Structures are given as structure tokens and as C-alpha cells.
Amino acid sequence: MPEPAMLFVLPFPAIDPTLIQIGPFAIRWYALAYIVGILIGWWYAKRLVSNTALWGPAGAPMKPIDIDDFVVWATLGIILGGRLGYVLFYDLPMFLAAPWQILQVWNGGMSFHGGFLGTVVAMILFARSRKIPTWSLIDVVAPSVTFGLLFGRIANFINGELWGRPTDVAWAIIFPNADGQPRHPSQLYEALLEGLVLFLVLRFFTHKQLRLRQPGFISAVFAIGYGLARIFSEFFREPDIQIGYLSGGLTMGMLLSLPLVIAGIILLVVASRRPVAAA
């Protein structure tokens, strides 16, 4: 590493991953990020449903109370799907050797793609049980997910995990649990792209383009936006040590995000052909 570049390395903020601990009971930043993300996402989803101007004369095909009831389903989908996804996609041999560690969510964390699939299953089942158009429910939930992505990636940074690749950029950080090399704070890149930028893009389509009136359109934009943001961030993120690089320099994050982008493009084409509800 060139000597001048080391002058610009930023110190890693000394933030305890455990926010509060009373005896055996502990509240970790990672868990708090999920809780806050779900609560704010819940509030935002109800705002979308309540805003009649976004839906046309017929109004939203669901009520705010439906969102209240769906929160429990979504929470289960996120936690069960996210954890199961990490176990299956990222470190299955280790968990097969020590299956009790599956319940230790702080050990390895969660997989977005697993949580995404778990939430999709929850939305399909809930929509059918309430006779709500499935794509309209997904369109409401999709923008609300960005809050959890934002806070979750910040929590990854606080935990000093999922760090980036070695670099000599001026904002490089030496993570205490890594190997002492200055690295990209890729967790913050993902927080910015998957959280803030994706939220603003979806906000444009829901409030300016009024695309909630075309079921599936917002869902498609979310799938494409997240997939591209994740693939881009993977160029700066160090692959999980137990997996490393795949064929052609790809990473597991890229491999799992590519089908999401392809499916999003197909859905975008289909949704764009649907008639828009009159203003």
C-alpha cells in the first residue's frame, strides 16, 4: 500500500455493537435496525394506502388496517426468510455442523435475498386471505422496505462486518475485525444506494408518476433498482470468506441479484402495458 495513501485512512468509530445490556438481556444495534426499519416501513405503507390521490377515483384496493395486520406476517417473512437464506446461500456446511447456531441471528446475520423471498411468500398468502390484489400489496410494501435496508446496512457498519475490498481511497477505513488493510466502507455504499437512493427513485414513481395505478410497476422498479445497486456495491465489497469469488470474478451477491433484475425488467414490461387508472 503506498505510504501517502495511509495518511487518509479514517479511524473506525468505536461503537459497541450492543446498545444496552442488562444481565443476559441485550439489545444489539443490528436487531434495533430491523425493528426501526419495520416500524417506519409500516408507517410509510399506511401513508401510501391512505393517500387517495395516488390511486385514482377507486382508491386503494386495501385499507390501512390491512397494513396493520400484515406487519406480523412481514416480520415473520423477513426474519425466517432472511435467516434461512443466509444459512442456505452463504454458509450451509457450517450450520449443518452446528445447527444450534442457526438461532444465533447475530452470527452471520441475515440474507436480503432470503428475506425478500420470505416477504414475497407472506405477501402472497396475506393478499389471498384478504382478497387484495397481490401486486398492489407488493407495490405498497416495496418502497417501505428501503428503510430496513438503510438501517440494516448502517448496523453492519457499526458491527464492523461485511466490509469492503482493500483500497487507497481517501475515505478508506481499517476495520478492527479485518486484516489491518484500509478498506472500502461498502456497508455505507449499500446504505446509500439500496436505502436512500432507491427510496427517492420509488418516491418519484409513486408520487410524481402515480404508478401505483399500474399494479406491478413499483414492484418492478424496486427489483431492478435493488438488483443493480447490489451488483454495483459488490464490486467494492469483500466476498464472504467461506465462499470467496465465483467463476469469472462474480460474487454470491451478484449471482443472487441478477435474476432479480431480469425478473424486474420482465415485470416492468408487463406492468407498463396495463391501463393507468384515471386521475
Rank of each mutant, 00 (worst) to 15 (best):
G227L: 04
I20G: 00
Y44T: 06
E234T: 03
Y44G: 09
R211S: 15
P239K: 05
M1V: 14
V169R: 11
R203W: 15
I241K: 05
L260A: 14
W73K: 03
D240V: 05
I67N: 06
F70N: 02
N51K: 12
D69A: 09
F222R: 01
P13V: 05
S233Y: 02
L258T: 15
T146Q: 08
F199Q: 04
A5R: 01
P93H: 13
V201W: 05
R153D: 00
L39T: 13
P93F: 10
T167K: 01
P185I: 10
Y34Q: 07
R28Y: 10
R230M: 04
E3T: 14
A142Y: 05
F222Q: 00
A127P: 13
V140C: 09
V72T: 15
V36S: 12
V221P: 08
L48T: 05
R230Y: 10
I138Q: 02
I35E: 12
V36C: 12
D91W: 08
V140T: 04
L96Y: 06
R213I: 02
R274K: 15
G216W: 01
D69V: 09
F126Y: 13
A122L: 00
A178R: 01
R213F: 04
L267N: 06
V71A: 14
A60Y: 00
G180C: 04
E161M: 00
A229Y: 01
R128I: 05
A229E: 01
G152D: 10
W163K: 05
L202H: 07
A142F: 00
A278D: 13
F236P: 03
M252H: 08
R128Q: 15
A97N: 14
L267A: 14
L200W: 08
G249A: 14
Q101E: 15
D168L: 15
E161K: 11
T206F: 03
Q101C: 00
S257N: 13
S144R: 06
N177G: 13
F12L: 09
F157W: 10
G225D: 11
R128M: 12
G160V: 02
N177C: 03
L162Q: 06
I27F: 11
I262G: 13
